[in-house]
Design a protein around this nucleic acid. Sequence first.
DNA 1: CGACCTTTTGATTGGCGTCAAAATCTGTGG
DNA 2: CCACAGATTTTGACGCCAATCAAAAGGTCG
Lengths: 248, 248
Amino acid sequence: MHTIKTQIKTDCANCEKRSNSFLKDIPKSSLYLFQNYRKAQKSLPARSIIFEEAKSHDFIYTILSGWAILYKTVSNNGKRQILRFVLPGDLIGYQTTAHGHLAHSACTITQSVLCAFSRTEIKPLLSKHPELAVRLLEMGSKDISLCQNHLIATGRKTAKESIAYVLLELFFRVKKQIPNDYESDTNSIMFPITQEDLGDAVGLTNIHVNRVIKELISNKLITCNKRKLSILKESELSELAGFSHEMM
Amino acid sequence: MHTIKTQIKTDCANCEKRSNSFLKDIPKSSLYLFQNYRKAQKSLPARSIIFEEAKSHDFIYTILSGWAILYKTVSNNGKRQILRFVLPGDLIGYQTTAHGHLAHSACTITQSVLCAFSRTEIKPLLSKHPELAVRLLEMGSKDISLCQNHLIATGRKTAKESIAYVLLELFFRVKKQIPNDYESDTNSIMFPITQEDLGDAVGLTNIHVNRVIKELISNKLITCNKRKLSILKESELSELAGFSHEMM
DNA sequence: CGACCTTTTGATTGGCGTCAAAATCTGTGG
DNA sequence: CCACAGATTTTGACGCCAATCAAAAGGTCG
């Protein structure tokens, strides 16, 4: 576990340039107002905790760069369930229980840069600026969709199908949210996820994930290591996974 | 599959009286305005389809009475995943894909009464009445929480644990959202769900669900049939399930 | 009362977990 | 720039939880 370094910067210019940031399409007047509530920019090393389940925490964040995960530790057996992979442009930390505690933990996968907003100061803002609330509704709707498809993959698909599904979902989310890592190679993305992470996302052991991924590789559907994921036969893999672009 | 009977009624008085309806806490001024968009009250028999995945549909609904489910059919193997049990006061049908199609199907479990609102007419309303948007945000937040805990039950719990979890979740949601079915017996609720439904919710076969439920019964933790569910030892069952009231 | 739905039971199978250990990769410090 | 420790991937053997198949028993509703 690493120490969290916080560095306040007045310049956060890239934040609202990102096309899929939650500040997209917010009218300038509201946007400027919202900017006032930007409190800090944090740069975190890989595998460091952003916030923890069941605690209270004053900030919500947008990811400017890097990968992270939202997860929960199961109380009766200590296992981890990854709820969501977090990519640049995503908003995290807004979800609390009825008692005001965080619903889950968040942890960086790679070195990341976050932009923090004060939770308490933003709430009253929503009533005054409906565009913000509507934008949050849209994002929430995508979150639910993502979670439901994730549930289907975990509940009603075989190991092979569910892993294929997660790989495809991540592939297209990255393509959409992160500017080309491998310009020349449109079938590939940077892929810093371990096989254990994948297992914790779909309810499998890292060992079985390994067996399945090796099978997908030997079937020439993908290539995959901790650096890079390539989708070799998109349509075939999509059919196997029960994945469609409609889902995204 | 049953024919959908639609009957328009001007009186929908109980709708906003329910304490957990999505219209709760909305100022009178907005509320009256919102009421204008109430289009119809539908009464449906048990096991009838409310709307179907991937189609377009003009209405969103609140449940006035009865139980329903949101589900999706997995494209590559035809299996069903239940995403959510729907109880009186819940709002359904607002979730669409980027292409404007419904994200999932909905079906009644028991005979039900729904209150319909026009989707297209409500959207512009949100910008004008932030309280509505904020209220929807709150509901969306609960939906996500529910879905995430459901994912954990399916992904990282054993059959016994996940079934115990679903029973407890339903038990307390019913207690909160439906007025006492069995006044004298506070440990019991009406329970119209089949074991096959339970299996489709947590990714198990009806046969294995049956074995587990019989085990829970013989352990004297619950009694359960298609009419009635009783929680006999709440704390013991909760510990087994990894369930806590914080989750709700 | 009779057809269908739901629950129950038993036998068998198989997918994925567990355990153990080797091989490889990665990052850090000397 | 190399060495080394820890993390991650890979392999194999074995076991178990839950699926599958089959069929009987019990419930429910028209």
